[in-house]
Amino acid sequence: MFPIYKKELQSFFYTPFAYAISALFMLLFSLSFSTGIAQIEETNKWAFSFTEMFYSVILYFIFLLPILTMRTFADERKNGTEVLLMTSPVSVAKIVIAKFLANITVYLFMLVGTSFFPIITAMKGEVVVSQLICAYIGIFCWGTMYIAIGMFISALTESAILAAIIGEVVMFALLFIDDFSNTPFISQYPKLQSVIYSFAAQPRFAYFSEGFIRLSDLVFFASAIIVFLAWTYIAIEKRRWNRG
């Protein structure tokens, strides 16, 4: 398991990939940071908060995380190296977990880059650290869930580009679940509305950014991650059985 994890990390960090994606993420982050600062008015100094910024940053994830996960399994299949992994004495579940951990590591690397902004702010002003930590936990959970989804999509196709595009579409759709559940049409059926609403990740993140760590939200993210990783495992196994 560890060799696969290490190999994945090498493929991210020995190439410009991890640095490019982190740089892009920081660029997008700094854009919302600077617009946030620009909007501060003399009369309302508290209008700017990092947690609100995180909230807008999540939109960028939809474009960045599928790029991170697109190669996970699609490239193995394209290079013919899937055979190597499958015929080595490592179980498929371990392969999935190793690749998942590697993706998370790159994701953490991206997040660590963003801590640059609160640090600078703390030097000149004041940062509510506890709330910031909560927001980081929330954004980490959310991103990890998206990574699991992206890996699942990557396991379904042979083309990395296709995996990225499908991933973006799916994640975009997921982002609008709560808006969708609040449409007048769905509101007519309150039970249906509550079912759909419970799948939305955005309101759960809102609790984190407000400084609440709720067990139900943690369970939501953890179960979503487990479900998508299990589906990834099943997709790979199914592919082997159907091959031909």
Partner: peptide, 19 residues
């Protein structure tokens, strides 16, 4: 089953770990 982005020795050491 080789990774085009790896060096020969790097690849073999990955495989040794895998095995």
């Amino acid at each position: 089953p080789v990774y085009p982005d790896m060096k020969v020795k790097e690849y073999l050491s990955f495989c040794a770990g895998l095995k």
